[in-house]
Amino acid sequence: MRWDADAVLGVLVVLAGAGFVAAGVVWKGRSVRPFASSRARTVAQREYARDLQRAADQVIATARRCAGEGEPAIVTVDAVVRVTRDRYGYATVERRHAAAALRRRYVHGRCAADCVTDAFG
């Protein structure tokens, strides 16, 4: 039995595929999980801030939809805390973080014209 170029290439492709499968089994999930705990904390803090921003946006949008014609939309920090807990699954949400996120989104969304909030108090 003689080995020709196609057979050698086929064996090399199969071995490379088996190597990739073995590497995937060994290093499963490493690409999404940081190696260092400090990087993991940084990623968690970034996600927390992003989730607070999203919750503030959702609360503002809901308040605007629920407000009657000519009435200001009432947006509270407690609503942001509640949405962050319920929708994003955080056990504890600090009120000052929720207030800061709500202030940022309040200014960014130009809510002063049609919204009232307790985030500045």
Rank of each mutant, 00 (worst) to 15 (best):
P34E: 14
E47F: 07
P72I: 11
V32H: 07
A91C: 07
R104L: 08
V77M: 04
R50S: 13
Q53S: 13
V13I: 10
C111Q: 07
S37A: 15
V80H: 05
A99L: 11
R30C: 00
R65Y: 05
T76S: 12
R105S: 05
E71M: 10
R50I: 06
A113Q: 12
Y88T: 00
Q53K: 15
M1Y: 01
Y88C: 03
A40R: 15
R64A: 07
A7N: 02
T42A: 12
V77P: 04
G10A: 12
M1A: 14
R104Y: 00
A99Q: 05
D6T: 12
A36D: 12
R96A: 11
R96Y: 00
R64K: 15
A44V: 10
G17C: 02
R104H: 12
V83P: 01
D57K: 13
F35H: 12
F35L: 15
V14N: 10
A67K: 05
V8C: 04
P34A: 14
G29L: 13
A67C: 12
R105D: 01
R105I: 10
T62V: 13
A67P: 01
W27I: 07
D118Q: 03
D6G: 08
A40C: 08
A22W: 05
F120N: 06
L52N: 03
A22P: 00
F35I: 13
R41E: 12
Q53V: 14
R64N: 05
V59M: 06
A112Q: 11
R110E: 09
Q45F: 01
Q58K: 11
A7E: 05
A73T: 00
A55R: 15
E69R: 14
V21S: 05
T84K: 03
S37P: 03
C115G: 03
W27P: 02
A61Q: 13
I74W: 08
G70M: 08
V8K: 03
Y48M: 01
M1C: 06
T84L: 01
A23E: 09
R96N: 11
V93H: 00
R65N: 02
L9Y: 04
A98K: 14
M1S: 07
V93T: 04
R41S: 14
Y88R: 10
A18E: 02
A79L: 09
A119L: 05
D51G: 02
R65I: 08
S37M: 12
T92Q: 15
T76G: 02
A36R: 14
T84V: 09
E94Q: 15
S31E: 12
A44Q: 14
A40P: 00
A101Y: 13
V80A: 10
L12I: 03
G19E: 11
D6Y: 02
C115N: 09
D51S: 13
A63Q: 02
D4C: 07
G17Q: 07
V13D: 03
D78F: 10
G68Y: 06
T42L: 13
Y88I: 01
R54M: 11
V93I: 10
Q53I: 08
V8I: 14
R64I: 09
A61K: 14
D78Y: 10
A55M: 09
G109T: 08
R41I: 12
